[in-house]
């Protein structure tokens, strides 16, 4: 693995009926773990985040060893240079949308900057009009956007010296296609500007193309390919185009 990678993962783990055995490194600003449901993508993400202790493995993030089973290293989730949003949008019910999004922002000595990033994040995720609402009445898509915005704001307003890795598990699931396309482009640009690397999980070919991301294809617990989306997902693209032709 190259030493200047943003993330290095090497792990073996058993979960459900899947024997995970993966090894990869991240070098591009946005990388997508691509694969069918049940292929182990979420478990890989949860291992990097610190919620799964792998049976065997080593994870190096932003130059810091966060897991090494041989050396008995296991850094707890909140101390890792990682910020994450899970697939299910669990919003804090006792807080407003804005308070949810601000929850992980840690620039305590820069209140003005914090406020500005918070407002920008709410705008990017089309949440400004919902800012003062409690979360109970929100629709599924709105909840999803709050959940992603919360992780994005936490990653931008991170208190360490390094840039944290942002982990997003199916960040655009449940959004209508037009809004999704807008958000994908917007989020990609804003995170690129803040130099925050992203590893997301998806099984949506269109989303991967929109992101122009590096794709790591996972199948039955193994990494089977890694490279630019145009190469790795060429078959899926072909299939999609054929389906469109048939429908026409």
């Amino acid at each position: 693995m190259s030493s200047d990678s943003l993330l290095e993962v090497k792990m073996r783990h058993r979960v459900g009926g899947i024997a995970l055995d993966v090894e990869f490194a991240l070098t591009q600003p946005w990388t997508v773990l691509f694969g069918p449901s049940g292929s182990g993508k979420t478990t890989v993400l949860r291992t990097i985040a610190g919620f799964v202790r792998p049976a065997e493995g080593r994870v190096v993030c932003a130059g810091r060893v966060v897991v090494d089973t041989k050396e008995k290293v296991f850094i707890p989730a909140h101390l890792r240079p990682v910020r994450s949003a899970a697939q299910a949008a669990r919003l804090f019910r006792n807080m407003t949308v804005e308070e949810n999004v601000a929850y992980g922002m840690a620039w305590e000595s820069h209140p003005d900057d914090t406020k500005q990033v918070l407002q920008e994040t709410l705008e990017w995720m089309r949440l400004t009009t919902l800012a003062s609402r409690k979360t109970d009445g929100l629709s599924g898509g709105e909840r999803q956007r709050v959940s992603v915005a919360r992780a994005v704001a936490a990653a931008i307003a991170y208190d360490g010296t390094e840039r944290p890795l942002l982990l997003l598990d199916e960040p655009f699931a449940g959004l209508d296609a037009v809004l999704r396309d807008e958000l994908v482009v917007m989020l990609r640009e804003c995170l690129r500007r803040w130099k925050i690397p992203v590893l997301s999980v998806s099984h949506d070919t269109g989303e991967c193309y929109l992101l122009g991301a590096e794709v790591i294809r996972i199948s039955e617990g193994q990494v089977v390919d890694q490279g630019p989306v145009e190469r790795v997902l060429v078959e899926e693209r072909q299939r999609m185009l054929e389906r469109l032709r048939v429908e026409r």
Binding site: G50, F51, A85, D159, L167
Partner: peptide
């Protein structure tokens, strides 16, 4: 308390 909420908060950098 759904443990998922505890993970969400820890994933945002909150101490225990």
């Amino acid at each position: 308390v759904d443990r998922g909420y505890i993970e969400v908060a820890a994933g945002l950098g909150a101490s225990p």
